[in-house]
Design a binder for these strands. Structure first.
Lengths: 158, 158
DNA sequence: ACGATATGGTTGCAAATGTAACCATCATTT
DNA sequence: AAATGATGGTTACATTTGCAACCATATCGT
């Protein structure tokens, strides 16, 4: 009986993925063209830029990225002299990351780009569309948090 | 002036991507565990299962996948004897794809899985959340279509 | 009818990613 | 204080991906 129609077009995971991919790639094209940076790098920069000095682990939590992605992004940004590491004195396992002056400059430019893109999106999607989307996403975020993949970064700390 | 706060948490591409990843991976875990199949394979199966005989290119359009992804997925499904190809008689460049009996059986099971998961999601997210999300996604889909990445498959044809 | 161009589809190669194992350090137990 | 186990972070390896070049066939312009 339940053998009737199934349309990919109506399937939520599919729709979400397609929308995310479209919206994400279009933005990535901007910073990739302008700064040759990858998404993990952009996210790392954004995390450090907005929340300041923090560890790799904290970056991962802030930006929902796996250890290894963060590790490689940090390495790349370090090469570029956009960030510097410093060992924690009391716990020598962890190192604190911080944007350099150049890094902060790049951050400022990048968030301008991001704001511009978000505005562009809002114009295309329409105000009510955006509001609804945001509400729906918030609901999913709740599910994510409940599911244990929580983040919610307090002003400092993981 | 515009140098004030920027939070990744509020950035639409980021939020969309995280939600899509969460929702998508959780579903993928189901069919990966049960059938050892990849997402491109699942999408291909879904496209062929719901719309019947069509070409690789059409599959790509139906499921928003790049040529190469489709090509590889088709190959995998063929190995598994879930689909068979047949040359078009009048245009020998293209080949038509069709699910075998086994493939159709797998399809039926898979869409049961998908329906179950979608129901689960709706329960977690809540009815109003789902409605809003769907509306927001529809708005984005309009943008995608206008942007030239259209799909909109007529009963047959690319 | 012939060269240029386009189209469906595959493949080679480089880059991105995920997984698991790993290293070093810290915490806990005894 | 030694053994056990956790934790932050990196790395090796296999898999997945994207891009561009490619092959074969078809179409278009002349």
């Amino acid at each position: 009986m339940t053998t009737d129609s199934f349309e990919l077009e109506q399937f939520l995971p599919y729709r979400l993925n397609r929308a995310a991919e479209f919206v994400g790639l279009r933005f990535a094209a901007h910073y990739k063209a302008k700064y040759g940076m990858t998404r993990p790098e952009w996210r790392t920069l954004a995390a450090l830029g907005s929340s300041g000095r923090m560890t790799s682990k904290a970056v991962g939590i802030h930006s929902s990225m796996h250890k290894t992605k963060v590790s490689r992004a940090v390495f790349a940004l370090e090469q570029r002299r956009w960030l510097k590491r410093s060992q924690d004195e009391t716990d020598r396992r962890l190192e604190h990351l911080e944007l350099t002056a150049t890094g902060q400059q790049a951050y400022r430019e990048l968030i301008e780009l991001a704001r511009g893109y978000q505005a562009e999106l809002e114009a295309e999607i329409g105000e009510s569309g955006i509001r609804m989307l945001a509400t729906g996403l918030a609901a999913i975020e709740q599910v994510i948090i409940r599911s244990g993949k929580a983040k919610l970064p307090e002003p400092d700390e993981a």
